Simulated assay, not measured.
Amino acid sequence: MSTAAVLSPPAPPRGVGPLLRRWRDQRRLSQMELALEADVSTRHLSFVETGRSKPSRDMVVKLAEHLDVPLRERNELLLAAGYAPAYPETSLEDAELGQVREVVGRLLAAHEPYPAVAVDRRWELVDGNAGVPLITAGAAAHLLEPPINALRLSLHPEGMAPRIVNLAEWRSHILGRLRREIGVTQDPQLRTLLAELEAYPGGDPDDGSPATQPGPGEIVVPLRLRHEAGELAFMSTITTFGTPLDITVAELSIEAFFPADAHTAAVLRALV
Rank of each mutant, 00 (worst) to 15 (best):
Thr3Pro: 02
Val6Cys: 15
Ser8Ala: 04
Ser8His: 03
Pro10Ile: 13
Pro10Ala: 15
Arg14Tyr: 04
Gly17Ala: 06
Leu19Ile: 03
Arg24Pro: 07
Leu34Tyr: 05
Val48Tyr: 10
Glu49Lys: 05
Gly51Ala: 06
Pro55Lys: 00
Ser56Val: 06
Ser56Ala: 08
Met59Asp: 03
Val60Arg: 06
Lys62Gly: 12
Val69Phe: 11
Leu71Trp: 09
Leu78Arg: 02
Tyr83Pro: 06
Ala84Asp: 10
Thr90Gln: 11
Ala95Arg: 09
Leu97Pro: 11
Arg101Cys: 04
Tyr114Trp: 14
Val119Asp: 12
Arg122Met: 00
Trp123Val: 00
Gly128Met: 11
Ala140Gly: 00
Ala140Lys: 04
Leu144Pro: 10
Leu144Ser: 12
Pro147Ala: 06
Ile148Pro: 02
Leu151Ala: 13
Leu155Tyr: 01
His156Gly: 02
His156Trp: 03
Glu158Phe: 05
Glu158His: 10
Ala161Met: 05
Ala161Leu: 02
Arg163Thr: 08
Glu169Asn: 05
Glu169Val: 01
Gly176Val: 15
Arg177Asp: 10
Leu178Gly: 12
Leu178His: 07
Arg179Asn: 15
Arg180Val: 15
Arg191Trp: 04
Ala199Arg: 10
Gly202Leu: 00
Gly203Cys: 01
Pro205Asp: 03
Pro205Thr: 06
Asp207Met: 01
Gly208Ile: 08
Glu218Arg: 07
Val220Ile: 12
Leu223Met: 15
Arg226Ser: 13
Gly230His: 06
Thr239Pro: 02
Thr240Arg: 11
Pro244Asp: 06
Asp246Thr: 11
Glu251Ser: 08
Ala256Arg: 15
Pro259His: 09
Leu271Asn: 08
Val272Thr: 15
